[in-house]
C-alpha cells in the first residue's frame, strides 16, 4: 500500500471541524459568564438551574417529546406495513405508491410545510400538536420505509413457510418469526425518525399555532443574548441524551447480530 500521510492529517482536520463545535457546548454551559467568548471565567452550574426554572422550556420539551414519540411510532408502524407489502406481495400501482412515499425525501421541506399549511387552513383543521405530528410522519416515512424494506428483504421467505408448515397461523408466524427477526430494523427506524422529528424546525414552525416546540423555542431564545448560556446547557443535555440513545441502539443491534449469527456490517443503519 502506498503511503499518503497528508490523508491522515486531512481526516483529523475534517473530524475536528465536524465535532469540535459540539465541544463548545459543554464548555460554555459551565462557564461563569453571560458572554460566549474566551477566555473562560470559571465554573458554574447556574445556567442549568436557570434552564430548569424555565417553565416555557419545559412545556416545549414535553410537546416535542410527544410529537417525536408519536411521529416515530406512527411512521415506523406504517413503515412496517408498507415494507411488508412491497417485499412480500405484488399489487397494481406498487411502484407509484412507493414513489409517492419517497417523494418527501427530495421535496424542499419549505414547500411541504407551506402546502400543508394552506390545505389544513382551507379545510378548516385547526393547527395543533396533532397537525405537526401529521407533517412529521410525512417526512419521516421515506426513512422508515427505506430502513424497514431492507430489513424485510433480508428475511428468508422459507422461514415463514416453515412456521406455517409447523402449524402456526399467518398472524402467529408474524409475531413469532417475522417481528423478532426484523426488530433491529424497527429499532433503527424508530431512532432515526425520532431524531428527525425532534430537531425538525420548518414544519414545527409553520404548523405549530404558537405552541412552544423545542426547536422553534431554542431558535427564538437565541435572539436574547442573556438566554444563550442556558440554551447551551440545554444543548449539552441533548448531546448526552443522543449519546445514550446511540449506545442503547448499538447494544441492541450487536446483541441481535450475536443472537442470529449474522455478520456485523458496521453502522446500525
Amino acid at each position: 500500500m502506498k503511503k499518503a500521510p497528508f490523508l491522515g492529517g486531512y481526516a483529523i482536520l475534517y473530524l475536528l471541524f465536524l465535532y469540535g463545535p459540539i465541544i463548545i457546548l459543554p464548555l460554555f454551559a459551565f462557564n461563569d459568564g453571560r458572554i460566549v467568548a474566551f477566555p473562560l471565567n470559571g465554573f458554574t452550574t447556574r445556567w442549568f438551574t436557570e434552564m430548569f426554572a424555565d417553565a416555557q422550556l419545559k412545556k416545549a420539551l414535553l410537546n416535542s417529546l410527544t410529537i417525536a414519540l408519536s411521529s416515530a411510532t406512527l411512521a415506523t408502524v406504517l413503515g412496517v406495513f408498507a415494507a411488508r407489502a412491497t417485499v412480500r406481495y405484488r399489487w397494481p400501482g406498487k411502484p407509484a405508491a412507493l414513489g409517492l412515499i419517497m417523494v418527501p425525501l427530495v421535496l424542499p421541506e419549505m414547500i411541504v410545510a407551506m402546502a400543508l399549511l394552506v390545505v389544513l387552513l382551507s379545510i378548516g383543521i385547526p393547527l395543533s400538536i396533532f397537525t405537526i405530528i401529521l407533517g412529521h410522519v410525512l417526512i419521516c416515512m421515506p426513512f422508515a420505509v427505506a430502513i424497514l424494506t431492507s430489513a424485510f428483504q433480508s428475511l428468508d421467505r422459507s422461514l415463514e413457510e416453515a412456521s406455517l408448515d409447523l402449524g402456526e397461523t399467518q398472524w402467529s408466524t408474524f409475531r413469532l418469526i417475522v417481528l423478532p427477526l426484523v426488530m433491529p430494523g424497527i429499532l433503527s427506524s424508530f431512532l432515526i425518525t425520532f431524531t428527525i422529528s425532534i430537531d425538525e424546525f420548518i414544519i414545527s414552525n409553520f404548523l405549530g399555532s404558537g405552541q412552544p416546540i423545542l426547536s422553534v423555542y431554542i431558535f427564538g431564545q437565541f435572539r436574547f443574548p442573556a438566554k444563550v448560556p442556558s440554551m447551551l446547557a440545554l444543548g449539552t443535555l441533548l448531546v448526552l441524551f443522543s449519546i445514550c440513545m446511540l449506545a442503547i441502539a448499538e447494544y441492541f443491534r450487536r446483541r441481535g447480530i450475536a443472537k442470529t449469527g449474522g455478520k456485523d456490517t458496521g453502522g446500525f443503519l
Binding site: 413457510e161 416453515a162 412456521s163 406455517l164 408448515d165 409447523l166 402449524g167 418469526i177 427477526l181 442470529t260
Partner: peptide, 20 residues
C-alpha cells in the same frame, strides 16, 4: 386445506432454521 392444517411437513432447501 391451509398448509398448517395439512398432514405434511417440509424440510426446506435453505433448511429455514429459525436463527433467533
Amino acid at each position: 386445506v391451509a398448509p398448517n392444517a395439512r398432514p405434511t411437513n417440509m424440510v426446506f432447501q435453505s433448511y429455514a432454521i429459525f436463527p433467533h
